[in-house]
């Protein structure tokens, strides 16, 4: 069965071809100004984000994610913040003890814009970068291997356990286990499912540990990589520009406030 093990969308686009570090720099050149520069800046950052979505040719997956995950989150936050943020004089709406003021709504709008920028830029990074490519590039630049392993396995553990659970459920149903009827029966049927799942996962962790150690995971020597990740001059220049832009946005903030 073909289960999608990450968010990655395997298409060819200028964004896909960028070095992973450059993409990470792009993400932070969105997030840092959004959170640390003028609050008015954050909503405008939606423009480069939307452009990036189309350059990366991941519109379908991005808007899918936006609809299912991002929009519900930021809508909820917007409502809560509008209702509960104290201060502000211009009352727009009065709901019993709660006042929705112009100021609280404005502040809520800036907050959700920041959240939107953060989630969206990370989403685009994950949609256009294979997680193992990102991690091998970062480990090559000095990120500890253990750290990369933790991130990679976190990204993969859910889909893997899901696939394993499916097999176990199929095996136990084949032995006449009723998983389709009353709630009480279903609770009782959890035991035959959890046992093999937990045991199997422990065995898998041990096997994986042995497998990566057999390839010198904790070896202190400098490792070479079979898979070369290109880092052309264009990427280096772009990263330089991004650093300047981020500094400029901070300076702007200091200047105007």
């Amino acid at each position: 069965m073909n289960l999608n093990r990450s968010f990655f969308v395997p298409v060819n686009s200028p964004l896909h071809n960028l070095n992973p570090l450059t993409k990470l720099a792009l993400v932070f050149s969105m997030i840092l100004p959004a959170f640390l520069s003028l609050p008015q800046l954050a909503p405008f950052l939606a423009i480069p984000i939307l452009i990036a979505v189309f350059i990366g040719r991941v519109q379908k997956q991005y808007f899918n994610l936006l609809l299912k995950l991002v929009l519900p989150t930021i809508l909820f936050m917007f409502v809560m913040q509008s209702l509960f943020l104290p201060g502000g004089e211009t009352v727009i709406l009065n709901l019993g003890i709660f006042d929705v003021t112009r100021e609280s709504m404005q502040s809520a709008f800036y907050t959700v814009s920041r959240i939107f920028v953060m989630i969206s830029s990370f989403a685009i990074l994950l949609l256009t970068t294979h997680p193992s490519e990102l991690m091998s590039d970062l480990t090559r630049r000095g990120l500890p291997g253990q750290f990369a392993y933790v991130i990679i396995s976190t990204l993969q553990i859910l889909p893997q356990m899901q696939a394993k659970a499916q097999t176990i459920i199929a095996a136990q149903r084949s032995r006449g286990l009723d998983t389709e009827s009353s709630f009480r029966k279903r609770i009782g049927s959890l035991v035959p499912l959890v046992g093999p799942l937990v045991f199997g996962s422990l065995v898998e962790v041990e096997e994986r540990a042995i497998a990566i150690e057999a390839r010198g995971f904790t070896s202190k020597r400098v490792k070479t990589s079979l898979h070369e990740i290109p880092d052309p001059a264009f990427d280096k220049i772009l990263r330089g520009i991004l650093v300047i832009l981020v500094i400029a946005s901070f300076t702007l903030n200091l200047w105007l406030s």
Partner: peptide
């Protein structure tokens, strides 16, 4: 028919025993 019901007619031994022993 449900799988649980069909299990009375068709027994299925999975490839990996660890997927079913608990």
């Amino acid at each position: 028919f449900s799988v649980a019901k069909l299990a009375s007619r068709v027994g299925y031994v999975f490839q990996n025993p660890d997927d079913q022993l608990f």
